Amino acid sequence: MKIKDFKLECYFGLYEFTAPYLLTQSDCESMRTEELLAMEPGAQEGYLKQWLGYTETWGDPDLRRAIAGLYQSMSAENVLVFHGAQEAIFGYMNVMLDPGDHMIAMYPNYQSAYEVANSVPGCELSKWYVRDDGEKWVVDFDELESLIRPNTKLLAVNSPNNPTGYTFTNAEIEKLCEICRRHDIYLFSDEVYKGLEMDGEKRDWMADHYDKCVSLGVMSKAYGLAGLRVGWLVSRDTALLDKVVKFKHYMSICCSAPSEYLSKVALKHGDALLKRNTDLIRENIKIADKFFEKYDYLFEKKPISCGPVAFHKLLIDMPVKEFCQMAVDKKGVLLLPADIYDMDGQYFRMGYGRKGVPEALEKFEEFLIENGFTR
């Protein structure tokens, strides 16, 4: 199998653990193991007694039941647990796509959601773009329908979207599922930021609306527990999950027993973790909004209604890639330029989910002042 380099991970490999001011991270604030265990009486003792043998390939039964409980119409048999979301995406796409298939991917998107299609000989890919209307990011469902062909097998979406922050409403989720149902298309729905709604509308999981939909979830993003490396696929199509689990036999085989234990503890207190991170995002947005109001001649701020990321626009006549490189080289402030997503335009990703955002914004402002970008 030949597959292109994962541009985002290559970029982060250079800077994520060396740049002191991370202003582009897409996950939420994490915590220490002891903090998580303290949320559940008796959890610390249970964790220390955790057996360190192999776990079930499908995932710990209690964990699968806990994940199923997040959905309206699922049981444990509808859940397949993975070693993170990346493994889930890679396994599903390899099982699903064959030569001669056509796939549509919401774009921009997490690279593995569409790159596997590019690696399958004779498999064709079309991009359904999230577009800038001058004020916010939007999608066009008529454009989506125009991309559908007789051999279209799969549509991959990501909502809340990384990097734009665009999020389908529940009415749009219904519309999306109806389009897929009418054309008999499988739907892969990356919903790793679900639960971080800030606009008053709690989104449904798409798999609850359509039998041929697979929903992707993970402990890393909305819950802020990336170190656990636990993700999942949920679908009513258990025959498809049976095929995917056989591909998993060639990857991790099973997940980490301590990680599954900690994930069970976290999901017992999932609402508290989501509220903690949503509140943090709200506070960071307030601080960042003041920053962008002050420098509205440098940046065009894009609003977000859900999730921890936004895709803002640089207004000056300097390539955004060069601007971001200058920020990390001169001040240690890490931003993510649009070319990482192979996108045109002066956009850069900013993350709102971590406690270090206020300090990073201060350093970003110092960078602007010290390098002559301010009036």
Rank of each mutant, 00 (worst) to 15 (best):
R131E: 15
R32P: 07
T164S: 07
Y54L: 14
Y71C: 06
G217F: 00
A76F: 06
L52V: 11
F90A: 02
N284W: 02
S112K: 09
N162S: 10
I104Q: 02
R236K: 15
K268A: 07
C213T: 03
V309H: 01
C254I: 03
N161G: 08
P20F: 10
H183N: 15
L14Y: 12
F373E: 07
L233A: 04
G122T: 13
K331E: 14
S220H: 10
Y295Q: 07
I89V: 13
F247T: 09
N170Y: 10
G84P: 06
L23W: 02
Y186C: 07
M106E: 09
F6G: 03
L334W: 04
N151I: 07
C28R: 01
L80D: 01
A310G: 11
G13W: 08
E172W: 02
A327N: 05
H269M: 09
A222V: 04
L336Q: 08
D62W: 08
V157W: 00
V95H: 08
G195M: 02
K221M: 12
V265H: 02
Q72D: 15
L48E: 14
D101T: 08
E143P: 07
Y71W: 10
D62P: 08
P121L: 11
S259C: 06
S26V: 07
Y15G: 04
L14N: 13
R236V: 01
V230A: 01
E56G: 10
D5A: 13
D190T: 06
P20V: 14
I304W: 03
G351E: 05
K313T: 10
D237T: 00
Y15L: 07
L14E: 15
D60F: 05
Y92S: 04
A360K: 04
M343L: 14
V79P: 01
D27R: 11
S189Y: 00
F373R: 09
D211K: 10
P163Q: 06
I340N: 03
R64S: 03
A19P: 02
V138E: 14
A226C: 12
E370Q: 14
D62L: 12
T167G: 02
P163H: 05
D271T: 13
L228K: 03
L335F: 06
Q346N: 14
L36R: 02
Q346R: 12
A360V: 11
F12T: 08
E191N: 05
Y295I: 07
K202S: 14
Q346K: 13
D133I: 09
Q50P: 07
K321H: 13
G356T: 13
L70A: 15
E143T: 14
Q346T: 11
I316P: 09
V157S: 00
I304R: 03
N170G: 08
Y54V: 11
A171P: 05
K194D: 05
P61N: 11
T169I: 06
W58A: 09
A360S: 15
A222Q: 03
F82R: 00
L187F: 01
K294L: 09
L262H: 04
E115Y: 13
I281P: 01
E366S: 14
G356Q: 14
M96G: 03
K7I: 12
D279V: 07
N161Y: 01
M74F: 08
F311W: 06
C255W: 00
E143K: 13
I369K: 15
R282Q: 12
Y114V: 09
L241F: 00
G270F: 02
T169E: 07
P20S: 08
L97M: 15
G134M: 10
